[in-house]
Nucleic acid binder design. Structure first.
Lengths: 274, 274
DNA sequence: TTGCATGTGAAGATCCTGTGACCAGGCTCG
DNA sequence: CGAGCCTGGTCACAGGATCTTCACATGCAA
């Protein structure tokens, strides 16, 4: 159902935030160190002991690829060239043993983004990878944010607007941001959290702005999509987004239940604010 | 013509292919070698013996900057950070004498794209610079050189001009670039985005240039194509391009409707009504 | 019930944008 | 060399849209 879809999208997005990196190398020590560091950073590491097909690389949806050309053996240059040509958005870092200037020049000319010489510090390699990814990202087409449909409404980040039945809800920028934020998560968001992520700084004690905006949002949602409840209040905590037809009491009962699977219970504790 | 050349880094790049590079260094031999190689490649090299103001860098409309942090002395890190922050599209390469891992890590974290250790081969340095620039340019929006018609106007990138009914709008270079950028996207573009892509560096807080140019654009569009609205304001967000006849109330209603140009909504839940 | 927390409406403050005037720098032409 | 023009960019003001605040009503929990 739609609720499930929303949760799925949010989860996917969270997973997508993890950088995906593949390393083609056979040095166990190197891999181990790298693996440890990257795990701490929350990256997604895939170790490969030899060249894989381009299609396999494509399917991995990588952000970056680190490769020891020595592992590739003959044909390494062609491989490098094909990879860089086929995946122009991929950051490619060659990390290998001692090399000649000519080799490094060749590698870079073929499309590699950087050349590291082993042995090297994992930290430095990571920085180089980050720099390459950063550079790639900056010029990526501004992320085409997909429209999402929840309940009867469609949220279009590209237009900073939500629609119901093709008609705009006429949300203001701030209203939209709050709706967008709420819709991306199925858990309860505390006011402070909402405020901080939308306004960009800490909420002053006793500020009611979030409440007021939630009211405006509900009003517009009600007008555009009557018969549905989208924003639910959790007394003493905050708000939770979940499109629900508001007929029937059982639905309401459901709201009271713990709809989360993973340990968000802590958040539901009656956090007595000062 | 020259007018086109003067206007904006992007324009300069397109107008002729000479890459613009500045080097902050004091090693005459290094500079000499680099200069020779770059001249052969047809690059535009600017040698600097010490740090210059950010604004000066901005006005140089560079593609890349090579800097020896030793020349910068104390405050080099802050300088590096400021440069990288203000000119996110600039390829920054640190090329300096022996350094510690920690220093290299710091430099890269602050936004440098690469770190070369002197002494180094000019050829290799050039490759590194090229790699950084390549990353920068690779994913640039595929420049549509074809004339495109939107509403009543025709945009001709090859002539750097827009026409309505065969008559030129007499746009200046910057006006044209903004119109061209806007016309290539259906989504709302934030001012910062517009600024960054047209001017080539980060917009200063409170800068109203984009607004002013939008006004000038609208004025010329209105004169050349009365009865049409091309640039729409999204309060608190930015501008969006969409040609629309502005007569009649129904048209106004149309504005409020969700533009569905390409059906990527199809992937999502089919808006279950009832 | 009391004590808070939240919903609601409206008014005033604040912010955002449109606009015209103005200034500086560069180029052209005399 | 300077005058004049063009272009890009800044500034201040005005009007309107939006946000915040406040007072009060309502609802929840103990």
């Amino acid at each position: 159902m739609l609720v499930g879809y929303v949760a799925g999208a949010a989860a996917a997005q969270r997973a997508n935030n993890r950088l995906r990196l593949a390393v083609i190398d056979r040095d166990p020590g190197f891999m181990q160190v790298l693996s440890n560091r990257l795990e701490a950073l929350g990256w997604n590491l895939r170790g490969l002991s030899s060249a894989v097909t381009i299609d396999a690389l494509v399917s991995m949806r990588l952000n970056a690829l680190v490769v020891d050309v020595a592992v590739l053996g003959p044909g390494s240059w062609e491989y490098l060239e094909r990879v860089c040509g086929r995946l122009p958005g991929l950051a490619v870092i060659v990390c290998t043993g001692p090399s000649s200037v000519a080799q490094r020049v060749r590698g870079l000319r073929l499309g590699a983004d950087a050349w590291m010489t082993k042995p090297c510090h994992a930290e430095e390699l990571i920085c180089v990878i980050e720099a390459a990814i950063r550079r790639h990202r900056r010029n990526e087409m501004p992320r085409i944010e997909e429209p999402t449909s929840v309940g009867q409404i469609t949220i279009r980040p590209d237009l900073y607007q939500a629609y119901a039945d093709g008609a705009s809800l006429e949300l203001t920028a701030r209203e939209f941001e709050i709706l967008h934020l709420l819709s991306q998560s199925d858990r309860v968001l505390r006011r402070e959290e909402i405020y901080e992520r939308v306004w960009g700084y800490a909420m002053a004690h006793g500020d009611r702005s979030v409440d007021v905006f939630v009211r405006k949002l509900r009003q517009k949602l009600r007008t555009a999509s009557p018969g549905w409840n989208y924003i639910h209040t959790h007394f003493g905590v905050g708000y939770r987004f979940a499109p629900e037809p508001d007929n029937g009491e059982e639905q309401l009962a459901d709201v009271r239940q713990m709809p989360t699977e993973d340990g968000h219970e802590a958040e539901f504790a009656p956090a007595p604010v000062g």
